[in-house]
Every structure is written in C-alpha cells, then in structure tokens.
Amino acid sequence: MRNGMTARIARWRTAAGRATPVPFTVRGGIALTGLLAVGVAWPAELLSSPRFMLPVLIVALWPAMAPRGRGGSAVALAVIAGWLVDTAGYGSPVELWRVLALATLLYLGHTLTALAAVLPYDAMVNFDVPALWLGRALLVVILSAVVIILALGLTADLGGDAFQLATLVGLAGATAVTMVLARMARRG
C-alpha cells in the first residue's frame, strides 16, 4: 500500500510540473465552485468546526484533482446533504438567492469538471476554449434563472387546478424533449 501511495504522489508531482495554464485554471475553477457551493449549502456552525470542515473540503476539492472520477457526483451529493441539514436540521429558510446560487455553482462545477475530464493537464489550449465553454454555461444559467423566477411568479398567481394542469403539461413537455433527444443521440 505504501508503494502505491508513493507512486501516486510521484505521478501528481510529474503532472504538476507539466501542467499548462488553461487546464490548471479550469481545475482551479472546479475547486472554487465546489468550495463556494459547500459554503452556500452547509450551515456556518458546522463549517467553522475544523473536525467537520476537513472532510467536506476534501470532497469539494476531489473533482479538481481527479475530474474523470466520481468526484463531481460526490460534491453534488455533499452540497445537497448540506442544504438538507441547513434547511431541515437547522431551520434555515429557503431563500431564492441561495437556490439560484446553488444551482449555478453546481452546474458550473459540473460543466467545468466535464471540460477538465477531456482536457489533459499538459494540453496547449487557448483561453478561448474555456471562455466559450463558460459563456455557453452562463447563458444556460441566466436563462434558467429567468424561467425559475417567472415560474415562481406564476405560482403566486395560479392556484389549484390551473397550476396542476400547467405542471402536468410541463412534465409532458420535458418527457417529450427527453425522448426526442434520446432518439437523436441513437441516430448520431
């Protein structure tokens, strides 16, 4: 086991020595979004405890170190668990800014992890590549936030049967889009 750890540390040193700026920046973005998401989701009382904070920080940094693994899913689950602990366990109110911030940070972390998974750490890449990637991701985030805010506004106006009908129509539309995309993916 010790030889395996020594070999892994030697590989990380080699990788750090050969890393180029763009992949390093992308991985830094993954770490930043993970840490911010954990900070928004978990209660401050728990994050201020060093005994509890260390495992959460390790999970938050995991996808930045190994983007091809299960780290992205582990961060998402840790953030969701923190949200549940804070809202259900500590009684924090559900606020729109926190929901939008968590959705944004989780999506950006996910998309940056996907980019880092296909981007070797020593690749020579222009900054245009991650800039365009993040531009598209931010467009998705902004459009999603607008739709969420409009939907929340409609829930205040609609009630009862009309709202239930709108929910069912929305679910049917989402199912139809998923089926069309799955069929298109099989053809391509």
Rank of each mutant, 00 (worst) to 15 (best):
M1D: 09
M1Q: 08
R2V: 12
M5W: 09
M5V: 08
T6S: 12
I9Y: 10
A10V: 10
R11W: 10
W12I: 13
T14Q: 15
T14C: 11
A15R: 15
A15D: 08
A16T: 06
A19G: 06
P23N: 02
V26Y: 00
V26I: 07
R27P: 06
R27A: 03
I30S: 06
L32Q: 04
G34C: 02
V38W: 02
V38E: 03
V40L: 09
V40D: 03
A41W: 00
A41N: 01
E45V: 13
S48V: 10
S49G: 06
S49V: 05
P50C: 00
F52R: 12
P55T: 00
P55A: 09
V56N: 01
V59A: 04
A60M: 00
W62L: 08
A66K: 02
R70T: 12
G71V: 03
G71S: 04
V75M: 03
A76Q: 05
L77K: 10
V79T: 06
V79M: 01
I80T: 12
W83F: 14
D86E: 11
A88P: 01
A88W: 10
G89T: 08
Y90M: 13
G91Q: 06
S92Q: 14
P93I: 07
P93E: 12
P93Q: 08
L96R: 00
W97V: 12
V99W: 00
V99A: 02
L100H: 04
L100N: 01
L100D: 02
T104F: 03
L106R: 03
Y107K: 08
Y107I: 09
L108C: 07
G109P: 01
H110C: 09
L112E: 06
L115K: 02
L115S: 00
L115T: 03
A116W: 01
A117C: 09
A117Q: 11
A117P: 05
V118I: 13
V118N: 05
D122Q: 08
D122T: 02
A123P: 03
A123L: 05
A123I: 05
M124R: 10
N126V: 00
N126Q: 08
F127C: 05
V129F: 04
V129S: 01
P130D: 04
L132Y: 11
L132A: 14
L132M: 11
W133Q: 04
L134P: 01
G135H: 12
A137V: 10
A137L: 00
L138E: 05
V140A: 13
I142F: 13
S144M: 15
V146L: 15
V147E: 07
I148C: 08
L152K: 08
L152C: 09
L152M: 14
L152I: 06
G153S: 00
G153Y: 01
G160L: 07
D161E: 15
D161N: 14
A162T: 14
A162R: 15
A162H: 11
F163K: 07
G170W: 06
L171Q: 11
A172F: 15
A172C: 12
A174M: 09
A176I: 11
T178A: 15
M179S: 15
A182L: 11
R183N: 09
A185K: 14
R186V: 09
G188H: 12
